[in-house]
Amino acid sequence: MGFKLLSKLLVYLTASIMAIASPLAFSVDSSGEYPTVSEIPVGEVRLYQIADGVWSHIATQSFDGAVYPSNGLIVRDGDELLLIDTAWGAKNTAALLAEIEKQIGLPVTRAVSTHFHDDRVGGVDVLRAAGVATYASPSTRRLAEVEGNEIPTHSLEGLSSSGDAVRFGPVELFYPGAAHSTDNLIVYVPSASVLYGGCAIYELSRTSAGNVADADLAEWPTSIERIQQHYPEAQFVIPGHGLPGGLDLLKHTTNVVKAHTNRSVVE
């Protein structure tokens, strides 16, 4: 069995187990497998329904001669939608809004960016022009300005110390501490036991640490421990890039980060 097929099978099995364990909360999309990078042309966006009122959005972007996937989250909030992270750029984010209108038909009224990198804030200006209120932590807003990236308009308070959590509509926002970046936030959907790890969490097929220019490698494993301790009931975990899975993604990420750190020390 090929690795790609095995990865998709694991996603399907995880979703099936969740649907059985929580039949009222989960209505997993039966329309197909989780979209992969090879299936999404740059400039297009796919939506994948995880649970009743919960979707991931998947886009792709060219970077350094390669094409990478990027995940975000959409959560229903009454007759409105909360968006977590842009679709990595203005063109993708405009396509995301169009796809949401086509498939869901509810307005996106608020959006949260989970850290300051372009795959999370690139497209904020498109959201703002569409009347979406954009939010991020003060740290993310400051770092985005320093980096020359787009800056969300509103500040999220109460997320300055490791372990801080605040309720934001249908989700809980959690600051686990520094990891992929010093400002990275985690998003949890309690009604569906869905954990969105953003770039602080890796997919299972990833074996290298990737972009760690703004990471705190020493603190990252401790931050992941905080996530595990705060959300032990999480059933569906979405990484910032690639295929979702279960809580095993947290341990896998820790292993990859520690291996990278150990290699760096040896070198």
Rank of each mutant, 00 (worst) to 15 (best):
S56G: 15
L13S: 15
A98C: 09
K258A: 12
L9P: 13
A192Q: 13
T261F: 08
V54M: 05
L143H: 08
D85Q: 00
H115N: 05
L159G: 02
E150W: 01
P69C: 05
G158C: 05
R120L: 01
K91T: 14
R142N: 13
R167I: 14
L217K: 00
Y34M: 15
A234S: 09
A51N: 10
W220G: 01
L217P: 07
P239D: 00
N71E: 01
V28A: 12
V67P: 15
L143I: 14
N149L: 14
L47H: 04
A19G: 11
A133G: 10
W88P: 00
T60R: 07
G105H: 15
S139P: 10
F174G: 01
W55K: 02
D183W: 01
V126Y: 10
S31E: 09
T86C: 00
L217G: 03
F174K: 01
G53R: 10
V256C: 04
A234T: 08
A215E: 03
D214E: 05
E99F: 08
P138G: 09
P232I: 08
H241D: 04
S30P: 11
I74G: 03
P152L: 03
P35G: 08
R120H: 06
D183S: 01
E33F: 09
E267W: 09
I201V: 14
D77K: 03
L96C: 01
Y175C: 03
A136L: 04
P232D: 07
V108E: 02
E44A: 12
A218H: 13
T254G: 10
F174I: 05
I50M: 09
A218C: 07
P69S: 15
G240N: 07
T93D: 00
T109N: 14
V189W: 01
V266T: 14
M18T: 12
V171T: 05
G105Y: 09
Q228W: 11
V75K: 03
D214S: 08
F168Q: 03
D118F: 06
I201L: 14
D79H: 09
A98I: 08
V67L: 15
F3R: 07
D29W: 12
G169R: 05
A165W: 13
R110G: 08
D183I: 01
N92P: 01
S7Q: 10
K91R: 14
Y196W: 04
D64N: 15
R167E: 13
S181T: 15
D118W: 05
S62L: 05
V194Q: 01
V126I: 08
L127D: 04
K8F: 10
I104V: 08
V67T: 15
R110V: 11
D85R: 00
A215T: 06
S223Y: 04
H154Q: 10
R128W: 07
Q49A: 11
W220D: 00
V45N: 03
I227M: 12
A19K: 15
A129W: 08
E157G: 12
E80H: 09
L243I: 14
W88N: 00
E80W: 04
L204D: 12
L83K: 00
A144F: 04
H230W: 08
P152C: 02
A94M: 14
E172K: 04
V187F: 00
H230M: 14
G169M: 04
S160M: 12
D52C: 06
E99G: 10
P138C: 05
G122T: 06
H260D: 11
Q228D: 07
I74K: 02
L195C: 01
V166L: 12
A19C: 15
E99H: 15
L243P: 09
E225Q: 12
A21D: 15
V121H: 01
P69V: 15
L24T: 14
D29I: 09
A133Y: 11
A259N: 11
V132Y: 01
I50P: 05
D79M: 10
S31R: 10
I40S: 08
E145H: 14
S191W: 14
V11R: 10
G148N: 10
N71L: 03
L9Q: 15
A21T: 14
L82W: 04
D64Q: 12
Q103I: 12
R120Q: 03
G242E: 06
G240W: 05
R142W: 11
S223R: 02
Q49Y: 15
G169P: 07
V132A: 06
